[in-house]
Each structure stands twice: as structure tokens, then as C-alpha cells.
């Protein structure tokens, strides 16, 4: 076999490089452009691990676009959109539903349609909001976290929280925290005997019942790590209304476990939206569609322990298939929450 040796002259190198670049630009323009693309996404700080890991890797491999994830609180993301209204730098934002409502009111979001995001048509009822202004993707579920050493029998019912044997042993979230609403709504259901769907609007009854929980309270938390510390150390025996994503990953190494009580579980209002006037809208829609897809929701299940919104996705690990799932009316919550927090301060004070 004859060997062909070619001499590399400066002219030849320049010519071939130039030709290659031109061919790339002309022949594969979208790829070349995409390689330089970045998509800035705002979301919860706690999601950074899987957003920067699994999601970022899958998205970059498919679309050659790098995700720059800014993890913070929902209200801070809202503020970023407000401050940059004339020149948005965020393309996609993942926030809680009550904050989404505020963003819609300020005209910060672009409506989503199945034509733009095909997976939008495959979501569970009640997970696409305000005619497509945002959608829920993976929703962390809320049940009762308990210490397995103190309560080896588990925590089978929300009604058990009111048992005097738990005197000074329960930690509950403040109403400031999204997960705090579930206790108030469940209290209303226990007080009135109404189903959750109706009881959530009878907050007076909720306050009447939850006030009787005071002797059982160790404290009311605003910071999740503090509450989990108390549970892990055994000072607290249970945290009614804790997010699955905070407890299930630690179940193997810590004496705590999530219970899905017989009355049912609540799902968190984890929404994703397209920022109006945000850069790189094509890729932004591609990311939203990816996060709403059954494939990605199944892939993320072992990392997020959350409830999938896509009907084709598998049910969450460790939950019975017939578990009752409740999603609160976050529009009503957003309207009333300020007054509830004021009332909470007064009626739940030491």
C-alpha cells in the first residue's frame, strides 16, 4: 500500500482551515451557532444539583446549548425579572405557583401552547395554569416526615398530629413557607369533615383546629435544615407537611422517613415558565418541553423524589399507586396568604 506524504506548508494549513471554517458555517450553521449559546435559567437553589447535572448534560448533548443555572428563592427570581423587564437575561424560570401568579400580573411571562411545547398536552389535569402561562413539572410531594427511632410504627394519619402523646415533639413549617399551607388546609378538613378540595376555602375552621396543636409544637420553622436537624437528633419526632425531596434522599443515612398519610398527600407548586422577552426563546421552549417530558421526569425521579406531571411518566418511588394527591388552589392562596400570615403570628405565638 502506497503511502502518501504531504508536506504541511503554512499556506496549505491556512487554506484548509479557512475552507473548513467556511464549510462549517455554511453547511452546519445551527450547530456552529448553538455551540456558542447559553441559556440562563432561574430556579430554586435546592434544584441546582440535578439542574446542573442530569438536565444540563442531557440538554447540552441534544441542543449544544449550555445551561447557566441561577439557584435562589422564587421571590428573588421574580425580582430579577422585574428589575430587567426591559432587557431580560433569564430565558426560563422555575418558581412556585403563588409567585408565578405575581409574575403573570406584572406581564413578565409568555404564554405556552402545545404548538410551542408539545408535552404540554400530556400533563395531568390541574398542572397547566392560567391558560398556559406556566406548567408544573416535577412536584415534590408533602407528607409527614418522622423519626424512625422515636416512632418505629410510622405516622399513618394527619389526625394523629393532635394526639397529646406528641406534646412538644412536632415541628411545623411557618405559613411563610410554601409547605406550611398543607397543615392549615388539613386542619380545616379535620375540623369540618369536608373533603380537602372544599375545606381549603374554609380557613377559619383551619385556624380553629390548628390552634389546638400548640401544646404539641416544639417550634415553627422557616428554615428547612433547622427542622431536619431537630428531627434527625430526635428532639422532634415528626414534621407534618415536609417535602419528600428533603427527606427521602437522607432516609438511608438518617433515622428519618417520609410517611404518606391515609388522608393523602399534597404536591408542591413547582412551576416552569417562559420569560417574556427573554433571550434564546427557541432553546428556552426546548428546555421547558424536555422538563415536561415523561423521559426526563422518569430520569429525574431518583434524584428529585417528586410527583411527575406527565401522565406517561412512572408514579413516584415508594408511593402506593392509589395514594390521594391534592393540589391547592394557589390563586386563592396568593390572594389570602398575607392576611393568613398575620393571623398565624397572632394565634400561634408562644
Amino acid at each position: 500500500m502506497a503511502k502518501h506524504y504531504k508536506t504541511l506548508s503554512r499556506r496549505r494549513v491556512l487554506a484548509s482551515t479557512g475552507a473548513g471554517t467556511a464549510a462549517a458555517l455554511l453547511g452546519f450553521p445551527s450547530i456552529v451557532r448553538a455551540q456558542a449559546k447559553e441559556l440562563v435559567v432561574g430556579g430554586a437553589a435546592g434544584f441546582a444539583l440535578w439542574m446542573n447535572g442530569t438536565v444540563s448534560a442531557a440538554f447540552e448533548a441534544k441542543y449544544k446549548t449550555k445551561i447557566v443555572y441561577e439557584g435562589t428563592k422564587s421571590l428573588v427570581n421574580l425580582e430579577k425579572m422585574q428589575k430587567n423587564k426591559d432587557k431580560q437575561y433569564l430565558s426560563v424560570v422555575m418558581m412556585d405557583d403563588p409567585v408565578m401568579i405575581l409574575a403573570v400580573k406584572e406581564g413578565l411571562l409568555e404564554k405556552l401552547t402545545p404548538a410551542m411545547v408539545p408535552n404540554l398536552a400530556k400533563l395531568r389535569p390541574g398542572t397547566v395554569h392560567m391558560d398556559g402561562m406556566w406548567a408544573n413539572y416535577l412536584q415534590p410531594w408533602q407528607g409527614i416526615a418522622y423519626n424512625t427511632k422515636s416512632l418505629p410504627g410510622g405516622f399513618p394519619s394527619w389526625a394523629d398530629c393532635y394526639d397529646p402523646k406528641f406534646k412538644g415533639r412536632l415541628v411545623i413549617p411557618s405559613l411563610q413557607n410554601t409547605e406550611g399551607l398543607a397543615n392549615l388546609v388539613m386542619a380545616a378538613a379535620l375540623e369540618t369533615g369536608k373533603p380537602i378540595e372544599q375545606a381549603q376555602f374554609d380557613i377559619d375552621a383551619g385556624f380553629k383546629k390548628i390552634k389546638t396543636l400548640k401544646p404539641n409544637l416544639l417550634t415553627v420553622y422557616t428554615q428547612i435544615p433547622q427542622a431536619l436537624n431537630l428531627l434527625e437528633q430526635g428532639e422532634a419526632w415528626a414534621i407534618p407537611s415536609m417535602f419528600s425531596s428533603n427527606v427521602i434522599p437522607k432516609e438511608k443515612e438518617s433515622p428519618m422517613k417520609m410517611s404518606a398519610p391515609k388522608e393523602g398527600i399534597f404536591v408542591g407548586p413547582a412551576g416552569i415558565c417562559l420569560v417574556k422577552g427573554g433571550p434564546n426563546q427557541e432553546m428556552a421552549l426546548a428546555l421547558i418541553d424536555m422538563l415536561l417530558s415523561a423521559d426526563m421526569q422518569d430520569t429525574l425521579q431518583p434524584e428529585t423524589f417528586a410527583f411527575p406531571s406527565n401522565t406517561a411518566a412512572k408514579p413516584p418511588l415508594g408511593l402506593a399507586a392509589d395514594v390521594k394527591v391534592y393540589n391547592l388552589d394557589w390563586g386563592f392562596v396568593a390572594k389570602e396568604r398575607g392576611e393568613w400570615v398575620k393571623r398565624w403570628d397572632r394565634e400561634m405565638a408562644i
Binding site: L75, Q176, T219, V220, M348
Partner: peptide, 24 residues
Amino acid sequence: PSLLIGDRFQTLSTLTGRSFLFMR
């Protein structure tokens, strides 16, 4: 107070923090 007594014992500082950070 945030760490040793919690949200059920409001002081002027915690109320100030909450007004800015949560209630906006």
C-alpha cells in the same frame, strides 16, 4: 431568636426581616 426560640416569638428585628424578605 430565629434559632433559639423560632418563628412563634416575634421581635422587632424578626418582624423587620420578615416584612422585607417575605411580605415585601
